[in-house]
Design a protein around this nucleic acid. Sequence first.
DNA 1: GTCCATGCAAAGTATTTGCAGCATC
DNA 2: GATGCTGCAAATACTTTGCATGGAC
Lengths: 154, 154
Amino acid sequence: MTNVGEFDWFWAEFDKFLSQKQLKQTQQRKLIIDYFLQANRHIDADELHEIVKGKGHNIGLATIYRTLNLLKDSGLVEQRTFAEGRSVFEVSNPNSHHDHLICQDCGKIFEFENEKIEEIQLKIAEQLNFSLTDHRLELFGKCQRKDCTYRNKV
Amino acid sequence: MTNVGEFDWFWAEFDKFLSQKQLKQTQQRKLIIDYFLQANRHIDADELHEIVKGKGHNIGLATIYRTLNLLKDSGLVEQRTFAEGRSVFEVSNPNSHHDHLICQDCGKIFEFENEKIEEIQLKIAEQLNFSLTDHRLELFGKCQRKDCTYRNKV
DNA sequence: GTCCATGCAAAGTATTTGCAGCATC
DNA sequence: GATGCTGCAAATACTTTGCATGGAC
């Protein structure tokens, strides 16, 4: 179990959340979240379950879902629905609001940030009399990587 | 059945698509698509099914799905996944690429367009060596409408 | 007449929930 | 020791598919 401190802030926040809600820290939650953080990418419940099982832990898929939903409730993790019918989760970093660029051939997801777009969004919301709380921007295209698998080519 | 010509272009394109693929025009498809176009909003398969049934037509939910998928294949309609676990469909107007502003309280969806953002997106994709084919931008916030129902207030 | 399309029901996915035993506080 | 948590299986929600019949070309 790597615990070099990179995610200490995450654990601190999560522990705070647990005690506030009078919930318990458990072996399973520790494991699931640890592997989730190690994965360090967009991951869905089933993938995470496979990883945990692959490491020899007998943890039910339901517990994976329950833990991910707990993380979502805590606000530490965001749930996204890129493809139809499947949700992926990722650590929500409140400081850097990044967006996604998705290759339609190989499915790889790249991240980027752009302040200008954020500014314009605020203006648009203002004009339409909205108070903006969040946004989601996804660009779809074809990456030029050599190892692009053309997964979805017809 | 209103047929004032507003969607003639749509039917022309769809008929072309059908004959290209050697598929057939049917009563059911006509009905489903007609009600879909009349709805003129983001709609999901179940809602559309209710509308069609409400008008006294005995059409199976499976046929609704099949027809919507057909429209998606034709490129005339886009499928979106706003909330988890439910897809909505809307006419894809290739000339005006609009985005969405969603009220987190009442769930109402507003549309907007912004050229500047589109420009920036192209630049970003270029920098990351992507050829951009599509995008999706969703803003979340609170609308200030009097009839905002605060549906999701905790 | 040949295929494709339809309705129905069954199967498929992704996710949630009920319950009895177990772990944490 | 009380209460929340877990694994399992069943339930749920959305969507797709198999099959026999009917309709379009």
